[in-house]
Design a protein around this nucleic acid. Structure first.
Length: 438
RNA sequence: CGGAGUGUGGCUCAGUCUGGUAGAGCACCGCGUUCGGGACGCGGGGGUCGCAGGUUCAAAUCCUGCCACUCCGACCA
């Protein structure tokens, strides 16, 4: 993409509304624009990142055996009356009437819809397990939206729903999602900790929140250090095999956020294993049995010929929140530092003297080569001063900056800067291109 | 939902107390000089001062109502 033809409205100053660094940087980098309280338009740069995160989530869901569908944003109130949640949900639910005075709502989540879909087709235990997910905009009319897309009213969520014949099978589905989530966060360059969450009225131990570590996180996290260092299981585990040992390895180590914290248990650990940190919640998984399937009569016939309500779990990832969360976890004074997996562009070519024949020629070569290599580069070909280009490239956080200037070219070299480490190398253009393309 | 606050060119803000020609910096347009970390000079464009009423010879400024947004607290991907 040539920057001169792109739409990337960067700001020198952060708008006064923005309180936290991710919000400030998203506005300054021209990623989003607020349209109303907690409601944002996604500008080109922001949309690129959002789509990349979405794709990582999608790939890991698919790998773990989940199947993507797309459910509507608008849902019929009658479905929620069946589950009993229409009256319970309160003012966070945005209620709408259509021209026929029918009650609709903008979905804050999709248990009812997915249960309705399931019961319409699946009748036998032989068709289980199933895990159905979608990545769709949700709306929760928060009393007080804040922090940009971190706590918006409209947000993009991946929500998956598992269906199993009994609790033991549901636990296997839960384990798949548990490990898949760790892989998602690892691919996004984040350190994530699964902490025990309030299981609600169902009880049991099948409820976890995933907290990513960031100094500016809203929650306090307490965890066994080994859990943090353990890393993700990786894509090559046997998703159809017994995942219980792998999950137990992690859940047996202490981890809790402030509301579930057990100080006595925490302090029973050796001091050098205790870790406290700030965290941002970016995922929540739980098993809720027949909470919806029973009232909504989503029944499956078991091997014994008897109908029983299907056992369900649900698994959410805040995709739009992750954009902000990654920035909170990865930035410096100059701007955002994107992990390569979600960077809006793979590399930037900074032509420090647009209009100069040598600079133009070398930049065009670099741009063409990086494009051909699939790096999806951003070429800053604007007629602007070097300082403005450096500042913009740092701000928007592209992993590689290939700096083409007249001084270097006179000596046959360009400069290659890695955004994350700040490391710079001066080397011939072809060597620089090889360094980026690997 | 309780409490507090703010609305003035795209952005950051002054001007409001004490009514009297709408301002600055950044951004934008033109010309020129510049050119390795958000340049400089000269010239220029852009604002019914959130909206609606009211008071007054005169309202960004005073009064009333409404709307939007932000912050603190209680609540949550």
């Amino acid at each position: 993409m040539r920057l001169s033809r792109y739409f990337m409205p960067t700001l020198r100053e952060a708008p006064a509304d923005a309180q936290i660094v991710s919000h400030q940087l998203m506005l300054r980098a021209g990623m989003i624009r607020q349209e109303a309280a907690g409601i944002y338009a996604w500008l080109p740069l922001g949309l690129r990142v959002l789509k990349k995160i979405e794709q990582v989530v999608r790939e890991e869901m698919n790998r773990a055996g989940a199947i993507e569908i797309l459910m509507p944003t608008l849902q019929l109130a009658d479905l929620w009356r069946e589950s009993g949640r229409y009256d319970d949900y309160g003012k966070e639910m945005l209620r709408i009437k259509d021209r026929h005075e029918r009650d609709l709502l903008y979905g804050p989540t999709a248990e009812e819809v997915v249960t309705d879909i399931f019961r319409g087709y699946i009748k036998s235990y032989k068709e289980l397990p199933k895990n159905i997910y979608n990545i769709q905009w949700k709306f929760r009319d928060e009393q007080r939206p804040r922090f940009g897309v971190m706590r918006g009213r409209e947000f993009l969520m991946k929500d998956a729903y598992s269906f199993d014949i009994d609790e033991a099978a549901a636990r296997r589905s839960y384990n798949r999602m548990f490990l898949a989530y760790l892989n998602v966060y690892a691919r996004l360059g984040l350190k994530a900790i699964p902490v025990k969450a309030d299981p609600g009225p169902i009880g049991g131990d099948l409820s976890h929140e995933f907290m990513i570590l960031a100094d500016t996180g809203e929650s306090q996290v307490f965890a066994h250090r080994d859990l943090v260092e353990m890393g993700a299981p990786g894509p090559d585990i046997d998703w159809d095999g017994d995942l219980e040992p792998e999950v137990t390895r992690r859940t047996s180590l202490y981890a809790a956020s402030d509301e579930m914290h057990d100080a006595a248990r925490f302090e029973a650990m050796p001091e050098d294993k205790r870790m406290t940190a700030r965290g941002i919640e970016v995922g929540h998984i739980f098993y809720f049995g027949d909470k919806y399937s029973k009232p909504m009569k989503a029944l499956v016939t078991g091997p014994d010929g008897k109908d029983t309500p299907v056992q369900m779990g649900s698994y959410g990832v805040g995709v739009s929140r992750l954009v902000a969360a990654i920035i909170e976890a990865s930035h410096d004074d100059s701007g955002i530092i994107w992990p390569a997996s979600v960077a809006p562009f793979g590399a930037a070519v900074l032509n420090l003297r647009a209009g100069d024949a040598a600079c133009d020629a070398a930049s065009e070569t670099a741009y063409a080569t990086l494009t051909a290599a699939g790096l999806d580069p951003l070429y800053d070909d604007r007629d602007d001063r070097p300082g403005a280009k450096f500042a913009a490239a740092d701000l928007v956080g592209i992993p590689w900056q290939l700096i083409v200037g007249p001084k270097g070219l006179a000596e046959g070299v360009v400069e290659l800067k890695a955004r994350g480490s700040g490391e710079r190398q001066t080397l011939p253009l072809d060597a620089a291109l090889r360094a980026i393309t690997g």
